[in-house]
Design a protein around this nucleic acid. Structure first.
Lengths: 263, 263
DNA sequence: GGTTCAAATCGGTCATACCATTCTTCCTGT
DNA sequence: ACAGGAAGAATGGTATGACCGATTTGAACC
């Protein structure tokens, strides 16, 4: 969490290509790629940094805000601006995907299918690479599911942790990030589904099948087990969605229609 | 594109939760989810919109900039601010993933593996759903590759278009977006690889295998053929780049073109 | 009717001031 | 001497106002 050597910041070239704020973004981005800015680093105060770069504070703030919007920087009033610290698995913001979904009318079927494809991929990789500790964690979460058959909320906690463990065991942080991105969007709908699910036991069984395939280092079996599990989950969700219990946070109108769904 | 009815913009509640600009973002985002803002729509001028929302212009600009950073809005000096128009397949900005890769030291192996997983998924789906037109386009691109064996740059153009056609044939725009996101990052490295590739013919052959599997509606064969193709491509790249461990040269950033790949 | 140019429009940038939150430091009281 | 708290400094957040440059628009002109 140390501050940075101010010398690494250089003035913006007046004869630049695009707008001034774009040049600020480009410079900060390049410093990240070059390794001058590392996770947890604290940037100089806006007033000072603006002086160093030779731009006004609003322009600098515009650049910082753009990088903050994509999850690279984080500003805290009174504290400073920091390069995002990676404590868990790196995560990409899902709101861009959410907005794209709304703008282009992505269907829930597409969303489920994308999640299924990603989860199958990580399950297959996990079957090849999972360590003993990771498999132990999976087993614990499966056990937790069986122990929470009468507590849907707790069940969902174990469910989520199981999938995250599988993703971590895949050893591919990019696929993990993409999977989380999609899964996050579907999370709210999962809450509602799981809460009224009559067959949590069946879900737990399917998770156990995934676990066993991974333990046996059988990628294809793991992929198929994961696929079956998610297909079942999607069917359960669709059954709920048809029911007129409309708790979709939306309202409005429009249309919706068809296969629409609010993310 | 038409302007909007100003009445749909409402004042920001003074007793809000987070910061003012966050509230602006939340409101704009909700309007997109609700369908009040549609692709191609033009927002009111910043000065007017700031009045309508009851915030200052810098605060409004902060919100707009955040949404522009994730590719939802686009401002053009002198023209106005627009909701991004979907001319091609919707595309997510790849720079966040690029930055995450630099910050967390993602390896090129992970990147290739993620691309391989996504391409396999879309290839399998394409084998199930590709239309006649789409298969015809694929065949044309394969033919174009064979016709460009002595012109690596032209070969790469057909290569990219082939993969995009397959992705489009998958019918899943989310997977397509994610795939483009990863593929874009690897694009510059592909240029270098393909330029010195000694066996473009073999690459073209492998693309043809993918095409044939899709034409025969054989998902598993399509997945395997695509996997083999990308494994080969990765090996070729690794052979070229033994020395440098660095990846991720900085690109233009920003979305812009509807194609996803910047050529 | 088509072209050109000037005015209006609109986002980009800058300067400045003040507010809200957080951090630091020093003082106070035990 | 030490712990607690309060005052001040540091820092990001917001607001106001102005000017610039790019774009659009429309009217005048050919």
């Amino acid at each position: 969490m140390t501050d940075l050597n101010p010398d690494i910041f250089k003035h913006i070239d007046p004869e630049r290509r695009g707008t001034t704020s774009e040049e600020v973004i480009a410079q900060l981005r390049e410093m990240i790629h070059r390794g001058d800015l590392r996770p947890g680093d604290r940037l100089p105060p806006e007033r000072d940094l603006a002086k160093m770069l030779g731009v006004s504070r609003p322009t600098l703030r515009a650049g910082i805000r753009s990088l903050a919007a994509v999850g690279v920087l984080q500003s805290r009033q009174g504290a400073g601006t920091f390069v995002v610290k990676a404590d868990g698995p790196p995560s990409l913001d899902s709101s861009p995907l959410r907005l794209m979904a709304s703008l282009h009318g992505f269907t829930s079927a597409e969303m489920f299918e994308a999640r299924q494809a990603l989860e199958m991929a990580v399950a297959g990789l996990a079957a090849e690479r999972a360590t003993g500790d990771q498999m132990a964690t999976m087993a614990e979460e499966v056990a937790g599911m069986f122990a929470s058959l009468d507590d849907p909320e707790q069940f969902l906690v174990h469910d989520v942790r199981f999938h995250q463990t599988v993703a971590a065991a895949s050893g591919n942080r990019i696929l993990t990030s993409l999977m989380n991105m999609v899964a996050t969007i579907l999370f709210d709908t999962r809450i509602k589904t799981v809460k009224r699910a009559t067959d949590l036991r069946e879900s737990a069984e399917m998770h156990r099948h995934v676990y066993r395939a991974i333990r046996e280092h059988d990628p294809e079996a793991a992929r198929l087990a994961m696929s079956a599990h998610l297909s079942k989950a999607q069917m359960a969700w669709e059954a709920e969605a048809d029911a007129p219990e409309g708790l979709l946070p939306e309202g409005n109108g429009s249309n919706g229609n068809g296969a629409g769904f609010s993310l």
